[in-house]
Simulated scan of single mutants.
Amino acid sequence: MNQSLHSISEQERIISLDIMRGFAILGIFLVNMLTFHSPFPNFDPYEWWSGTADQAIYTFIDIFVQASFYTLFSLLFGYGLVIMWERSKIRGSTFGLIGVRRLSFLLMIGILHALFIWHGDILITYAVMGFLFLLFIRMKGRNLIITGVLLYIIPNLLVSLLLFVSLLVAPAEEITIYDPEQAEMTLQVYQNGSFAEIMIQRMSDWYETNNLANAPFMLISIFPLFLIGGGAAKLKWLEKPKEHKKFLTLLASLSLLIGIIFKLLPYILGKNFATEYVQDIFGGPLLAIGYGVAIALAIEKTVFYKILSPLSFVGKLSMSNYLFQSIVSTLIFYNYGLGLYGKVTVVTGTVMVVLIYILQIAVSRFWISRFYYGPVEWLWRSFTYFNWPKWKREN
């Protein structure tokens, strides 16, 4: 087999990317857990969870986690695609076919995930946005970032202004995502329904978010992050953090500071659809950038590298670990499993996240010591490169 078609070798991996992926998998799990065990976000969380500890942990997740980790993964996805594109050029292979096969496999896995496991799937969206990103991948790094930033800020700023104006003509309670009737129906199906009934509900819940009416919002909230991440890859920000240390330190500091301000907006101005939209749409990505850059800079120091490096085991098996979280969680909460849906508090759910994630670190470390790729990652690479990459390590 021609070397140009080989997948990325272990030596070529960028450890900071794996650590960030592992960190993102934890953050995504914290947010997803709220939907795994409850009909969130169809209810007011501060009414549904009345306990002080529940509200405190939910507030922490809302400020520091919500909308920050799927956006971090979006940035990393664009970054990773550009790395593959550049390495394909070096090896003289045609990236177009490789990229299409890679995204096609992701789309297939996403469809199976959404239909048979969990409606909150993000893989389908990543695949679709990835196909679109292939049209832009040849742009220069600086142009990718500028295009991504403008495509993100301008339409989302207009939407935000429109929402604030709407509050002047309509009561805030009339503009809400909360739907108590839908929450109750969802609760009954996932708590008591058969597998077939749950599957129908799952498809309905997926379509509620992933319909054509919401497509423009996906385009202005996720796709620009692919461009920004891809631009950062071309500028080698993560491969050579020391060369960009001054800029990256300023970027991380400002992103975290301004991101926290946006995230606190509903708690300062009051919770309504407008402030919560701005909180997530601007605060989430800013924190994502801050988290990612801070990790890249921190692991340059040995002490922080030792602390954060266990996350890389999960990151190397990010797809397998993401799917594992969905499978385990739905088996715990849905009626065809333990049937605990609607019976778990935020505190309990968060403790479960921590315990499952620690298990994932241990299992991932064990797996990586014996295999080069996770099971899903190996299939993904096999389909992408149309060969069978070496899987088991020789001891």
Rank of each mutant, 00 (worst) to 15 (best):
Asn2Tyr: 06
His6Pro: 02
Met20Phe: 15
Ile28Thr: 05
Asn32Ser: 15
Phe40Asp: 03
Phe43Ile: 12
Pro45Thr: 06
Gln55Phe: 00
Ala56Tyr: 06
Ile61Glu: 10
Ile61Asn: 11
Asp62Cys: 08
Asp62Lys: 09
Tyr70Phe: 15
Thr71His: 14
Thr71Leu: 14
Ser74Pro: 03
Phe105Glu: 00
Ile109Glu: 00
Ala114Met: 15
Ala114Phe: 07
Thr125Ser: 15
Tyr126Met: 11
Met129Cys: 15
Phe133Gly: 01
Leu134Gly: 01
Ile137Leu: 00
Leu144Asp: 02
Thr147His: 09
Ile154Pro: 01
Asn156Trp: 01
Leu162Lys: 12
Ala170Trp: 14
Glu174Pro: 06
Gln182Glu: 11
Ala183Tyr: 06
Glu184Thr: 13
Val189Phe: 01
Glu197Ser: 04
Met203Ala: 13
Leu212His: 06
Ala213Gly: 12
Asn214Ser: 11
Met218Trp: 14
Ile220Lys: 02
Phe223Gln: 07
Leu235Lys: 08
Lys236His: 05
Leu238Asn: 05
Pro241Cys: 09
Glu243Ser: 10
Leu248Glu: 02
Ser253Pro: 03
Ile258Gln: 00
Phe262Thr: 01
Leu269Gln: 08
Lys271His: 08
Tyr277Leu: 02
Tyr277Arg: 00
Gly284Glu: 10
Leu287Pro: 04
Ile295Tyr: 03
Ile295Ser: 01
Phe304Asp: 07
Leu308Ala: 10
Ser312Cys: 11
Phe313Thr: 11
Val314Trp: 13
Ser329Cys: 11
Ser329Lys: 07
Leu340Met: 08
Thr348Cys: 07
Gly349Asn: 07
Leu359Gln: 09
Ala362Ser: 10
Arg365His: 14
Gly374Ser: 11
Phe383Ile: 11
